[in-house]
Amino acid sequence: MNKADKSILTKSTIERLEKLLVVFPEKKSIVLPALHLVYEQFGYLNKAAIAEIAARTGVPDIYFEEGANFYTMFPIAPVGKYLIQVCHNISCTLMGADELVRYLKEKLKIEVGETTADGLFTLVTVECLGSCGTAPVMQINDTYYENLTREKVDRILEKLRRQE
């Protein structure tokens, strides 16, 4: 059977992976970009996908594992459809990050690190997002939400629930 037949990677992921292989002077450099590809397709670091990438590219599994352990941006297990990451570093703390976290916990009825029962939202805290001038800030999946107020948070969550 042809390799592509049993692939769990999408065609687009495979194409982008193949492009990566010719970009860098050394093949091992694809580790982090490949983790991004897996994260984009699955929303977390799916082990089977990483194994497939290792097999396809000949870059040993262990390098991807090391990367997965080191780089904190990628969840290593499935999370809610929307991953809410609230910055709790200094500038955001000065502008009320703690209250923001408390408010989100109340609204979502979960603790930090948990996912809502409907699988929609996971709430975590993170370090500085590089957006301190518009604190408090949270990132939901790829998008930054800045200058947050209670009202804004209400609107954002409502909109995401509707899009569900």
Binding site: K28, V31, L32, P33, H36, F70, T72, M73
Partner: peptide, 27 residues
């Protein structure tokens, strides 16, 4: 010019860690 996206580690802003990361290792 090639764009390379980090993985959420502050230490990779340090110049030698940045290079280790670009080479495919932990930063």
């Amino acid at each position: 010019i090639t764009l390379y996206r980090g993985g959420g580690a502050y230490i990779c802003g340090e110049e030698t860690a940045l290079m280790t990361s670009l080479e495919g290792g932990p930063g």
